[in-house]
C-alpha cells in the first residue's frame, strides 16, 4: 500500500477550479517532485494536503487513514509536516525554540507540570533540548541555536523550516520550493541535505520546485501540474523529456 494515496482531489474558488482531479500515489521512502508553471496549483495541493483548505472533491489517505476534512493541527499529528513557500518561521523566537515548538506534541508534561516545575518538567525539557540540538546539527545550525530566527540569513531560514517540520516526526514531509532564492552552491548543499534526511530519517518527501536541476537531481518521480490539472506523471527522466511538459514551460 502506498504511504500517500490521493484520489481525484479538487477545489473551487468561486467557480475557478484551482486544482481539479488530482490523483497520486506515493510509496514510502520516495522523493517525489511536484512541478509546473507559476499558478498551476502546486501550493494549493499542499494547502489541501495539510488541511488549510477543505477539498471540494476527492479524498486523500496517509497510511490508509482518511485525512480530508481534518484540521491542519490534526493532519500534522497524523503525520504530514510542511514548509512554506514564503518562509513562516516563529521569527521572534530563538532558533532552538522554533525546533522545540515542532517537538511540542512529543512531550507529555501538563500545564501544571510546567507551571510548578515538577521533575517530569525537567526530565522532558532536557530530552527535548538534546533532541533539538541533534536536529540542528543535521542542518548545521547548532551554532545559531540562541539567535533569533529572523536574524538568520535566508538560506539558513529555509533549513530551519525543514528542521522544524522534521521535529514533528512526520511520515510525509512536504517542502514548498526549498531552494527558492538560493545560489547554485547552496542548492547543491540543500540537495545533499534532503537526500540525507530521506535516508537517515526514513522519510518520504513530496516537494514543489522550480529549479529543474534539483528536481532532476534528486526526485525519483514527478507530477507536472498545469492550470490545476495533471499534465504528466511518472519517472523523472521520462517526464522531463516529454514534449508536452516542455511546451507547458516554454510555450508554443
Amino acid at each position: 500500500m502506498s504511504l500517500l494515496q490521493v484520489k481525484n482531489l479538487g477545489i473551487n474558488f468561486g467557480g475557478l477550479k484551482a486544482v481539479d482531479d488530482f490523483s497520486v500515489n506515493i510509496e514510502k521512502g520516495t522523493l517525489y517532485g511536484l512541478i509546473g508553471p507559476n499558478g498551476a496549483g502546486k501550493t494549493t495541493v499542499f494547502n489541501l494536503l495539510t488541511g488549510v483548505y477543505k477539498p471540494s472533491t476527492g479524498t486523500f489517505r496517509l497510511d490508509g487513514e482518511l485525512l480530508n476534512g481534518k484540521k491542519p493541527m490534526e493532519i500534522n499529528r497524523m503525520g504530514i509536516a510542511r514548509t512554506f513557500q514564503n518562509i513562516r518561521l516563529f521569527s521572534n523566537m530563538s532558533v532552538i525554540d522554533n525546533v522545540k515548538v515542532g517537538l511540542h506534541n512529543h512531550q507529555t508534561y501538563s500545564v501544571f507540570d510546567g507551571v510548578f516545575r515538577t521533575p517530569k518538567y525537567y526530565r522532558e525539557e532536557k530530552s527535548m533540548n538534546d533532541e533539538a540540538v541533534e536536529l540542528l546539527k543535521v542542518f548545521d545550525l547548532e551554532n545559531e541555536k540562541n539567535n533569533l530566527a529572523f536574524n538568520l540569513p535566508y538560506g539558513k531560514q529555509r533549513k530551519l523550516e525543514i528542521a522544524r517540520a522534521l521535529a514533528t516526526k512526520p511520515k510525509l514531509l512536504l517542502l514548498d520550493e526549498p531552494a527558492a532564492g538560493m545560489n547554485p552552491n547552496e542548492t547543491e548543499e540543500l540537495m545533499s541535505t534532503i537526500r540525507f534526511v530521506r535516508d537517515n530519517f526514513d522519510m518520504t518527501i513530496l516537494l514543489i520546485e522550480h529549479d529543474m536541476r534539483l528536481v532532476g537531481g534528486i526526485c525519483e518521480e514527478v507530477t507536472v501540474l498545469n492550470f490545476g490539472t495533471e499534465l504528466a506523471k511518472g519517472k523523472t527522466s521520462e517526464v522531463l523529456n516529454d514534449p508536452r511538459v516542455i511546451t507547458a514551460y516554454l510555450g508554443e
Binding site: M73, N76, L89, F90, N92, M93, V101
Partner: peptide, 16 residues
C-alpha cells in the same frame, strides 16, 4: 509564543 509569531505555521506544527 508560536501562535503570536505565526498562527498558520503554529497550526501546521500541530499546536492546538
Amino acid at each position: 509564543t508560536a501562535i503570536r509569531d505565526n498562527i498558520i505555521s503554529a497550526e501546521a506544527m500541530g499546536i492546538n
